[in-house]
Design a protein around this nucleic acid. Sequence first.
DNA 1: GCGGGAAGAGTAGTATTACTACCTATGAGG
DNA 2: CCTCATAGGTAGTAATACTACTCTTCCCGC
Lengths: 108, 108
Amino acid sequence: MLKGHLDALLMATLAGGPRHGYAIKEALRAGSGGRFDLPTGTIYPALHRLERAGLIRGSWSVVNGRRRRSYQLTATGRRALTRERSSWREFSAAVSALLGEAPWPAPA
Amino acid sequence: MLKGHLDALLMATLAGGPRHGYAIKEALRAGSGGRFDLPTGTIYPALHRLERAGLIRGSWSVVNGRRRRSYQLTATGRRALTRERSSWREFSAAVSALLGEAPWPAPA
DNA sequence: GCGGGAAGAGTAGTATTACTACCTATGAGG
DNA sequence: CCTCATAGGTAGTAATACTACTCTTCCCGC
């Protein structure tokens, strides 16, 4: 369960240049040390969602007789990724603080 | 949007001792610097869910003519919180790494 | 004595999300 | 020929956090 941060991760894989869907899946798996080995049923619908939202743009090509859909970040997507990054930093800092061992004074 | 980590946060507020629902809400708001100011429509159903799952136990009391439901962690809940903490550490480390500025080599 | 806000608990219904389970096709290697 | 990896996809489901509301009591200001 990626709990709402999937979009950011997908966009992050595209920050270095276009990739096709399957390569995104592999990049996510490799980059997370195998922790995020997402089923295609998670990846593809999410990509379609991002495309509908105008954050990424896809285009068909054929490589070795296999059709591929390559995605790249749009300008909007790039801005969204920046926002997502800082929002993640804030969010994770807050959660980490709250989850820390001793932040909760004994209630009155 | 707390994206699946709400349960862990709720349980964390109870790690220092029992609290009633509204106090949990306030603790979360204060402890997050106002970032997690959750509506009661998020808090209460989540507490009921945790209670049904046996992770927390609630009991009614009356203070100043107002009825209160105080919750405390069960033994199971305490173990679950420990697991959630380490799962969060793993998860957030992985996401932070993937979201970092330069982890994505230009695709072939 | 009255209105409004804070304390306190709750429900109903909704939108989104990531999931399982499936289907299709090609190329390479045994 | 068969299977695996590559590559893309859909349908349907369960869970989750949300909005929007209800109900009550206490306290403070006017």
